[in-house]
Design a protein around this nucleic acid. Structure first.
Length: 248
DNA sequence: CGTGTGCCCTGACAGC
DNA sequence: TGCTGTCAGGGCACAC
């Protein structure tokens, strides 16, 4: 493939050898770990990208955009990594060393994999005084959950986001695991969550946002019909939405 | 060590 | 119609 950079950095600098390593390489596969995308190359290297909050790959773009920072061109397609806020990142790691890459080595289990269970959560959260909301956002506890899905999962499991993680009860943990799985599977099925600027690579919108039970529903009534009014609070500098009636 | 805070950056939107 | 303030799907450095 052909490779071009339009600037030197996103969140951090692009790898110094990115263009040299990727130019002429062939993509042998794509995969994902937590919120990172992986592009495996035929020369023993893997490009790892994170889309941050505003990043997306534009496929066969007809026009250039100001925030197209990295351009790839294969025999079949052109790809532009567009990221207005530049909260994303691109790294280059030896394919044999992916598991020991520091950002991966510290990650918790995948929520849709076999590692997430009530027993695991009980052990991982034991003694933690931090809120369950912030603990679930911690990628070292569970890999890949973001603000929307943590809020939605806690509502489904009827757990109050401010509850200390170490004090979440056994029955609550038992509800939390399927709640996390269900909310992720539902969102994947609906094509993701379009808020302001997110779109799928083909430009289509994700419709899971229309299914939110709490996210962004400040002041609206709880869908459980318990008379609760969805509240918005701040935790760790991020917004949390929950129902004060059914989430305990 | 665990926990909490603030900041990186641009753009969209609400309210005046 | 401009202006201003606020907020955003995340992660990290840093202070205590």
């Amino acid at each position: 493939m052909r490779v071009a950079l339009n600037r030197a950095d996103l969140r951090r600098p692009f790898p110094a050898d990115l263009v040299q390593v990727m130019t002429g390489a062939t993509v042998t596969g794509l995969s994902r770990r937590a919120k990172y995308g992986l592009m495996h190359l035929d020369r023993g290297a893997t490009m790892i990208f994170h889309l941050g909050m505003s990043g997306r790959w534009r496929i066969d773009p007809e026009t250039a955009e100001p925030h197209d920072h990295l351009l790839l061109e294969t025999a079949q397609h052109r790809f532009a990594l567009c990221d207005p806020r530049r909260f994303g990142s691109v790294d280059l790691v030896g394919t044999h060393a992916l598991d020991t890459w520091p950002q991966f080595a510290a990650l918790g289990p995948e929520p849709l994999g076999p590692g997430l269970s009530a027993a695991y959560l009980k052990a991982a959260l034991k003694g933690k005084t931090q809120s369950i909301k912030l603990s679930l956002l911690d990628q070292r506890i569970v890999a890949g959950l973001g603000n929307i899905y943590v809020c939605e999962a806690l509502w489904r499991a009827r757990v109050r986001p401010t509850k200390q993680a170490g004090k979440v009860t056994g029955p609550q943990l038992a509800r939390l695991v399927p709640a996390i799985v269900d909310v992720l599977e539902a969102s994947i099925r609906d094509g993701g969550s379009t808020l302001r600027d997110y779109a799928r690579p083909d430009g289509k919108l994700g419709y899971f946002a229309s299914s939110f039970d709490v996210y962004g529903r400040t002041g609206e009534s709880c869908r459980r019909g318990d008379g609760g009014m969805i509240a918005r609070i701040a935790q760790g500098g991020r917004s949390t939405w929950y129902c004060p009636v059914c989430q305990k």
